[in-house]
Design a protein around this nucleic acid. Structure first.
Length: 297
DNA sequence: AAAGGAACCTGTTGGC
DNA sequence: TGCCAACAGGTTCCTT
């Protein structure tokens, strides 16, 4: 569910609540997420001060003063819910929000809340119905050597991610560009939504062979990827600013997609111009892709 | 080695 | 209204 922009926004929300605070109490209520939680995780978190956060692809890393970092992946359905322990505020760091009738310290416990972290002021729960999410502890000095991070491709928002870098990575791939961009080894952080969105912005067909995305096409695609991610983070970030509302719900990119989930709707690039067929939905590698067949080549 | 599909789980949605 | 199938934003693992 959460792709790079959602993970970035969730992480910034966690930082607001946890940065600099001491985890007074930690609890692993259900130890079997995607993989078993690391040994004694709750004990290794308890008493630690949170020194800072960082994101790598769709992974969040929370630095502790013990010299370890908590690695968090939200999987498909993972979200974080922060409640003020002695007040009404609730921050739901959830990509699609959902019902928001929670009432703070008197609210019923969230279902599927597998891990809980408590500071003096906040109770932060990791909620993940499908349990595709994961947590692990890793030495801070060797974060990037972690098995789940070691193979990741470049960060798309960093300057080092250029058209040259991308086309070099795509060169030997005999697969549609859609599938290649979902591969976290090519570029880290894109998922099913933003791949469709970026290809639309770059006028590139999702069916095009990856290795033919070079030259001018790669020069269009890289800025398109950066722009759609940045726009989405800006949308989430702006809603994060007023999180203090008692029923605080962090908004995300939501209804602002150009193509994702818009089958049969007009294409924003060629509205009403025949023979544009509007947005089509196709299935690639078992997953939905949305695009405009006229515009994207 | 790379590509495609199944598998992991649970919740929601849409059709009949 | 009820039931069931299809589908969901991710990733790994197992075959070809």
């Amino acid at each position: 569910m959460p792709e790079l922009p959602e993970v970035e926004t969730v992480m910034r929300g966690l930082a607001v609540v946890l940065d600099g605070q001491v985890i007074e109490h930690a609890e692993a209520r259900r130890p079997d997420l995607r993989w078993p939680l690391p040994p004694r995780m709750a004990a290794r978190l308890t008493g630690q001060r949170v020194l800072g956060f960082r994101r790598r692809g769709k992974y969040m890393l929370m630095r502790l003063d013990s010299g370890e970092s908590l690695l968090i992946h939200l999987g498909m359905s993972g979200r974080m819910v922060a409640r003020e322990r002695h007040g009404p505020a609730v921050i739901r760091l959830a990509p699609q929000g959902g019902a928001s009738d929670a009432r703070g310290h008197n609210a019923p416990p969230e279902a599927h809340e597998h891990v809980v972290l408590e500071t003096a002021e906040w109770r932060v729960g990791f909620v993940d119905p499908r349990r595709f999410g994961a947590m692990d502890l890793v030495p801070t000095a060797a974060e990037d050597a972690h098995k789940l991070l070691a193979g990741l491709g470049p960060e798309p928002l960093e300057d080092a991610f250029t058209a040259g870098v991308l086309s070099a990575a795509l060169e030997c791939r005999r697969t549609p560009i859609k599938a290649a961009l979902l591969d976290q080894r090519i570029v880290a952080g894109l998922g099913n939504i933003y791949v469709s969105e970026a290809l639309f912005r770059a006028d590139i067909s999702p069916r095009r062979l990856a290795r033919t995305v070079a030259g001018a096409r790669a020069e269009r695609l890289v800025p398109a990827i950066k722009a759609v991610l940045a726009d989405s983070i800006a949308a989430g970030g702006s809603s994060l600013r007023d999180y203090v509302r008692a029923d605080g719900e962090v908004g995300f990119f939501q209804e602002r997609f150009d193509v994702y989930g818009r089958e049969d709707q007009p294409c924003a690039h060629c509205p009403g111009v025949p023979p544009c067929q509007g947005i089509q939905r196709i299935v690639q590698a078992g997953r939905s892709t949305f695009y405009c067949a006229k515009r994207q080549r």
